[in-house]
Amino acid sequence: MTGWLGNRVITQIGILVHDIEQVSGAYAEFFGVDKPPIAETDSPDMAKTRYRGQETAARAKLAFFDMGPLQLELIQPDSEPSTWREYLDRHGEGPHHIAFVIEGMEEKVMLLEGRGFPLQQRGEYEGGRYAYMDTLKDLKVIIELLENDKR
C-alpha cells in the first residue's frame, strides 16, 4: 500500500534560513561538495503563487543539494506573505517541509483537505507545480506535493 499520496518516497527536505549564502556554504563544507548556485523562485506572473487563498508576490532564494535520492532545499524567503515567511517568523530557522512527487495534484489536494489538512500555499515552477498542505498538527511538519509535467 502506498498511502494517501500514492508514493511513500520522500523526495526533498526543505529548511528555512535567514542567510542562504552563509548556510549553503556551511552545508557545502560539511558535505565536502561545491556550494550550489543560488536560484530564485519565478516571478509572480509565472509562479501564480497563492497563499491561504490569496495571490501573493512572495519569492524566495533557493539552494539545492542533491544527496543521493534525497534533495536538501535551503529556502530564504522575502518579506511578502508566504508559508515560508510565516513559518520562519513563528518558528525560526530549521526544517519546514518534506516533499513527495505525486500525480493528480487536484485530487491529492482535495483528498488531504477532506482529511483535515488545508491547502496552505500553491504555485507553479518551470515544468510543474507544488502545493504545501498544513499537516503540522498531526505530522509535525508541512507536506509539500510536487507534480512534474509529463515529458
Rank of each mutant, 00 (worst) to 15 (best):
T2S: 10
G3M: 07
G3R: 02
L5M: 15
G6E: 14
N7I: 02
R8C: 13
I10Y: 03
T11D: 12
T11Q: 11
I13D: 04
L16E: 03
V17W: 00
H18A: 14
D19M: 12
I20Y: 12
I20P: 06
E21V: 14
S24V: 02
G25E: 11
A26M: 09
A28Q: 01
F30R: 10
F30Q: 09
F31A: 05
V33Y: 10
D34K: 09
K35M: 14
P36Y: 00
P36E: 03
P37A: 15
I38R: 03
A39L: 15
E40Y: 07
T41G: 08
S43A: 11
M46E: 12
K48D: 15
K48G: 11
Y51K: 00
R52C: 13
G53K: 02
G53T: 06
G53F: 10
T56I: 06
A57C: 08
A57T: 13
R59Q: 12
L62R: 01
A63V: 03
F65Q: 04
M67Y: 14
L70A: 14
L70P: 01
Q71H: 08
L72E: 02
L74K: 01
Q76L: 09
D78P: 06
S79C: 09
P81R: 08
S82N: 13
R85F: 14
E86A: 12
L88R: 04
L88W: 11
L88H: 08
R90P: 06
H91F: 15
H91Y: 15
H91I: 10
G92R: 06
G92S: 10
G92K: 07
E93S: 12
E93D: 13
E93Q: 15
H96V: 02
H97M: 07
H97G: 03
I98H: 01
I98Q: 02
A99V: 01
F100L: 02
E103G: 07
E103W: 05
E103N: 07
G104E: 12
G104I: 12
K108M: 01
K108I: 00
V109P: 00
V109S: 10
M110H: 11
L111P: 03
L111I: 14
L112T: 03
E113C: 08
R115V: 02
G116K: 00
G116N: 02
G116I: 00
F117S: 00
Q120W: 15
E124P: 01
G127A: 04
G128I: 05
R129P: 05
R129M: 14
A131G: 08
M133P: 05
M133C: 12
T135M: 13
T135R: 05
L136N: 09
L136D: 12
K137A: 14
K137W: 14
D138E: 15
L139R: 04
V141Y: 08
E144Q: 06
L145E: 00
L145I: 01
L146S: 10
L146W: 03
D149C: 04
R151H: 11
